[in-house]
Computed example of a mutant assay.
Amino acid sequence: MNVRLLHPSIQSHVHKCDSDNSGGILVCKCSDKPVRVNVQGGIAHNHACGCTKCWKPTGAAFSVVAVVPTENISVVENSDKLTVVDKTALIQRYACKACGTHMHGPVEREHAFQGLSFIHPELFENDSWPQPTFAAFVSSAIEGGVDPSEMSEIRARFKDLGLEPYDCLSPALMDYVATWTAKKRGALG
Protein backbone atom coordinates (compact mmCIF):
# COMPACT_ATOMS: atom_id res chain seq x y z
CA MET A 1 0.00 0.00 0.00
CA ASN A 2 1.38 3.39 -0.96
CA VAL A 3 -0.78 5.72 1.10
CA ARG A 4 -0.02 9.42 1.26
CA LEU A 5 1.46 10.76 4.51
CA LEU A 6 -1.29 10.28 7.08
CA HIS A 7 0.74 11.74 9.97
CA PRO A 8 4.37 11.11 10.95
CA SER A 9 3.42 9.38 14.23
CA ILE A 10 1.06 6.89 12.55
CA GLN A 11 2.43 6.45 9.03
CA SER A 12 4.15 3.10 9.38
CA HIS A 13 2.86 2.09 12.82
CA VAL A 14 0.79 3.60 15.60
CA HIS A 15 2.79 5.46 18.22
CA LYS A 16 2.50 3.28 21.32
CA CYS A 17 3.69 4.71 24.59
CA ASP A 18 2.31 5.50 27.99
CA SER A 19 -1.44 4.96 28.30
CA ASP A 20 -1.19 6.42 31.82
CA ASN A 21 0.39 9.64 30.59
CA SER A 22 0.55 12.27 33.30
CA GLY A 23 0.95 15.28 31.02
CA GLY A 24 4.03 17.31 30.27
CA ILE A 25 5.16 20.29 28.22
CA LEU A 26 3.95 20.95 24.67
CA VAL A 27 6.49 22.87 22.55
CA CYS A 28 5.82 24.70 19.28
CA LYS A 29 8.09 24.29 16.23
CA CYS A 30 10.03 27.56 16.70
CA SER A 31 13.79 27.19 17.16
CA ASP A 32 13.94 30.62 18.84
CA LYS A 33 11.79 31.29 21.91
CA PRO A 34 9.27 28.47 21.43
CA VAL A 35 5.87 28.61 23.06
CA ARG A 36 5.64 26.11 25.91
CA VAL A 37 2.34 24.89 27.31
CA ASN A 38 2.10 22.82 30.47
CA VAL A 39 -0.47 20.01 30.50
CA GLN A 40 -1.27 18.68 33.98
CA GLY A 41 -2.62 15.14 34.08
CA GLY A 42 -3.50 12.67 31.39
CA ILE A 43 -5.04 13.22 27.99
CA ALA A 44 -8.09 11.47 26.53
CA HIS A 45 -9.57 10.46 23.18
CA ASN A 46 -6.31 10.66 21.25
CA HIS A 47 -7.13 10.19 17.56
CA ALA A 48 -6.23 11.01 13.98
CA CYS A 49 -8.41 13.82 12.59
CA GLY A 50 -9.06 14.71 8.96
CA CYS A 51 -10.82 18.03 9.55
CA THR A 52 -9.44 21.14 7.89
CA LYS A 53 -9.28 23.16 11.13
CA CYS A 54 -6.74 21.09 13.07
CA TRP A 55 -3.01 21.80 12.74
CA LYS A 56 -1.11 19.18 10.78
CA PRO A 57 2.62 18.69 10.26
CA THR A 58 3.80 19.67 6.79
CA GLY A 59 2.61 17.19 4.19
CA ALA A 60 0.29 15.28 6.55
CA ALA A 61 -3.33 14.69 5.58
CA PHE A 62 -4.39 14.15 9.21
CA SER A 63 -3.64 15.65 12.58
CA VAL A 64 -3.27 13.71 15.81
CA VAL A 65 -5.35 15.37 18.50
CA ALA A 66 -6.54 14.64 22.04
CA VAL A 67 -8.42 16.45 24.80
CA VAL A 68 -7.57 17.53 28.32
CA PRO A 69 -9.57 19.59 30.86
CA THR A 70 -8.94 23.27 30.11
CA GLU A 71 -8.17 23.88 33.79
CA ASN A 72 -5.13 21.61 33.31
CA ILE A 73 -3.59 23.85 30.62
CA SER A 74 -1.23 26.75 31.28
CA VAL A 75 1.08 28.63 28.95
CA VAL A 76 4.46 28.75 30.68
CA GLU A 77 6.67 30.46 28.08
CA ASN A 78 6.18 32.99 25.28
CA SER A 79 2.41 33.43 25.59
CA ASP A 80 2.80 36.72 23.67
CA LYS A 81 3.38 34.64 20.52
CA LEU A 82 -0.08 33.05 20.67
CA THR A 83 -3.13 34.15 18.74
CA VAL A 84 -6.58 32.61 18.20
CA VAL A 85 -6.84 31.27 14.64
CA ASP A 86 -10.63 31.73 14.25
CA LYS A 87 -12.52 33.57 16.98
CA THR A 88 -15.87 32.34 15.60
CA ALA A 89 -14.97 28.64 15.82
CA LEU A 90 -16.19 26.37 18.59
CA ILE A 91 -12.62 25.36 19.38
CA GLN A 92 -10.55 28.49 20.10
CA ARG A 93 -7.27 27.22 18.62
CA TYR A 94 -4.31 29.16 19.99
CA ALA A 95 -1.47 29.07 17.45
CA CYS A 96 2.06 30.40 17.50
CA LYS A 97 2.21 33.53 15.34
CA ALA A 98 5.75 32.64 14.22
CA CYS A 99 5.54 28.95 13.24
CA GLY A 100 1.76 28.42 13.01
CA THR A 101 1.68 25.44 15.36
CA HIS A 102 -1.63 25.06 17.24
CA MET A 103 -0.77 24.75 20.92
CA HIS A 104 -4.15 24.35 22.62
CA GLY A 105 -7.78 24.88 21.75
CA PRO A 106 -10.29 25.39 24.55
CA VAL A 107 -14.04 25.00 24.03
CA GLU A 108 -15.44 27.96 25.93
CA ARG A 109 -19.04 28.30 24.80
CA GLU A 110 -21.94 26.03 25.69
CA HIS A 111 -21.30 22.63 24.11
CA ALA A 112 -20.81 19.03 25.22
CA PHE A 113 -17.04 19.66 25.05
CA GLN A 114 -17.13 22.92 27.04
CA GLY A 115 -14.31 22.86 29.57
CA LEU A 116 -12.05 20.73 27.38
CA SER A 117 -9.03 21.83 25.35
CA PHE A 118 -7.77 20.13 22.22
CA ILE A 119 -4.02 19.52 22.01
CA HIS A 120 -1.59 17.79 19.65
CA PRO A 121 0.24 15.12 21.71
CA GLU A 122 3.19 14.84 19.34
CA LEU A 123 4.21 18.30 20.61
CA PHE A 124 5.02 16.88 24.07
CA GLU A 125 8.72 17.19 24.92
CA ASN A 126 8.65 13.59 26.04
CA ASP A 127 7.43 10.72 23.92
CA SER A 128 5.21 9.12 26.54
CA TRP A 129 1.74 10.02 25.35
CA PRO A 130 -1.08 7.53 24.79
CA GLN A 131 -1.53 6.06 21.35
CA PRO A 132 -4.32 7.22 19.04
CA THR A 133 -7.30 4.88 19.17
CA PHE A 134 -9.45 5.87 16.17
CA ALA A 135 -9.59 8.17 13.13
CA ALA A 136 -12.27 10.88 12.97
CA PHE A 137 -13.65 13.05 10.19
CA VAL A 138 -11.85 10.88 7.64
CA SER A 139 -13.93 12.14 4.69
CA SER A 140 -13.07 15.72 5.62
CA ALA A 141 -9.52 15.09 4.39
CA ILE A 142 -10.98 15.51 0.90
CA GLU A 143 -11.79 19.13 1.80
CA GLY A 144 -8.09 19.51 2.67
CA GLY A 145 -6.99 18.36 -0.79
CA VAL A 146 -6.94 14.56 -0.61
CA ASP A 147 -8.19 13.05 -3.87
CA PRO A 148 -11.44 11.13 -3.26
CA SER A 149 -9.97 8.17 -5.15
CA GLU A 150 -7.46 7.73 -2.28
CA MET A 151 -10.07 7.35 0.45
CA SER A 152 -10.57 3.58 0.23
CA GLU A 153 -6.84 3.03 0.58
CA ILE A 154 -6.63 5.53 3.46
CA ARG A 155 -9.49 3.84 5.33
CA ALA A 156 -7.87 0.44 4.75
CA ARG A 157 -4.55 1.75 6.08
CA PHE A 158 -6.23 3.11 9.22
CA LYS A 159 -7.82 -0.30 9.79
CA ASP A 160 -4.44 -2.00 9.26
CA LEU A 161 -3.04 0.32 11.95
CA GLY A 162 -5.88 -0.59 14.32
CA LEU A 163 -7.52 2.84 14.05
CA GLU A 164 -11.19 2.49 13.19
CA PRO A 165 -12.03 5.20 10.61
CA TYR A 166 -15.15 7.31 11.21
CA ASP A 167 -16.63 10.18 9.24
CA CYS A 168 -17.59 11.86 12.51
CA LEU A 169 -16.33 11.07 16.02
CA SER A 170 -16.10 7.63 17.60
CA PRO A 171 -19.42 6.08 18.71
CA ALA A 172 -18.56 6.70 22.39
CA LEU A 173 -17.97 10.42 21.75
CA MET A 174 -21.07 10.73 19.55
CA ASP A 175 -23.09 9.09 22.37
CA TYR A 176 -21.60 11.61 24.81
CA VAL A 177 -22.58 14.56 22.58
CA ALA A 178 -26.09 13.14 22.02
CA THR A 179 -26.56 12.52 25.77
CA TRP A 180 -25.48 16.09 26.58
CA THR A 181 -27.91 17.42 23.94
CA ALA A 182 -30.78 15.23 25.21
CA LYS A 183 -30.22 16.37 28.80
CA LYS A 184 -30.08 20.00 27.71
CA ARG A 185 -33.41 19.61 25.87
CA GLY A 186 -34.99 17.74 28.78
CA ALA A 187 -35.36 14.42 26.93
CA LEU A 188 -33.15 12.72 29.55
CA GLY A 189 -32.92 13.38 33.28
Score class of each variant (00 low, 15 high):
residue 85 V to Q: 05
residue 5 L to E: 03
residue 14 V to A: 10
residue 28 C to L: 10
residue 157 R to S: 13
residue 23 G to N: 01
residue 4 R to K: 12
residue 25 I to M: 02
residue 32 D to W: 00
residue 4 R to A: 13
residue 151 M to R: 10
residue 1 M to V: 14
residue 119 I to W: 10
residue 27 V to W: 02
residue 183 K to F: 05
residue 46 N to W: 02
residue 133 T to A: 13
residue 1 M to Y: 07
residue 1 M to F: 08
residue 36 R to S: 06
residue 68 V to N: 04
residue 58 T to M: 13
residue 37 V to D: 07
residue 159 K to F: 00
residue 105 G to A: 04
residue 143 E to R: 14
residue 155 R to D: 04
residue 62 F to T: 06
residue 41 G to C: 11
residue 184 K to C: 00
residue 118 F to L: 10
residue 69 P to C: 04
residue 123 L to C: 12
residue 141 A to V: 10
residue 56 K to N: 03
residue 123 L to P: 03
residue 72 N to V: 09
residue 98 A to L: 11
residue 84 V to I: 15
residue 155 R to S: 01
residue 157 R to F: 04
residue 18 D to A: 08
residue 189 G to Y: 04
residue 3 V to E: 04
residue 17 C to T: 14
residue 160 D to C: 02
residue 131 Q to L: 00
residue 126 N to W: 07
residue 37 V to C: 09
residue 40 Q to A: 14
residue 32 D to R: 08
residue 172 A to Y: 04
residue 90 L to V: 06
residue 154 I to P: 05
residue 75 V to S: 13
residue 159 K to R: 13
residue 138 V to W: 05
residue 45 H to C: 09
residue 114 Q to A: 13
residue 140 S to E: 14
residue 185 R to S: 11
residue 6 L to W: 06
residue 4 R to F: 10
residue 139 S to K: 13
residue 5 L to V: 04
residue 149 S to N: 12
residue 81 K to S: 09
residue 172 A to C: 05
residue 58 T to D: 15
residue 123 L to E: 12
residue 22 S to I: 06
residue 59 G to R: 09
residue 4 R to P: 12
residue 23 G to M: 03
residue 32 D to Y: 01
residue 123 L to Q: 15
residue 9 S to W: 11
residue 9 S to A: 15
residue 56 K to V: 03
residue 179 T to M: 05
residue 63 S to G: 13
residue 151 M to V: 12
residue 145 G to E: 02
residue 43 I to A: 08
residue 10 I to G: 08
residue 46 N to F: 02
residue 166 Y to M: 07
residue 77 E to G: 05
residue 91 I to C: 10
residue 154 I to D: 02
residue 6 L to C: 08
residue 120 H to E: 09
residue 33 K to E: 10
residue 50 G to F: 06
residue 46 N to P: 11
residue 141 A to M: 06
residue 116 L to Y: 15
residue 107 V to I: 14
residue 158 F to C: 01
residue 154 I to R: 01
residue 55 W to L: 07
residue 39 V to P: 09
residue 142 I to F: 12
residue 149 S to I: 14
residue 176 Y to V: 02
residue 156 A to H: 07
residue 121 P to L: 11
residue 138 V to M: 03
residue 27 V to Q: 14
residue 166 Y to E: 01
residue 82 L to F: 08
residue 159 K to N: 09
residue 153 E to A: 14
residue 83 T to P: 00
residue 53 K to R: 10
residue 83 T to W: 02
residue 81 K to N: 12
residue 171 P to Q: 02
residue 160 D to A: 13
residue 164 E to Q: 13
residue 148 P to M: 01
residue 89 A to C: 01
residue 90 L to D: 00
residue 116 L to P: 04
residue 62 F to E: 03
residue 161 L to H: 07
residue 66 A to G: 11
residue 100 G to W: 02
residue 151 M to P: 12
residue 26 L to A: 05
residue 52 T to F: 07
residue 166 Y to T: 03
residue 81 K to I: 00
residue 73 I to D: 06
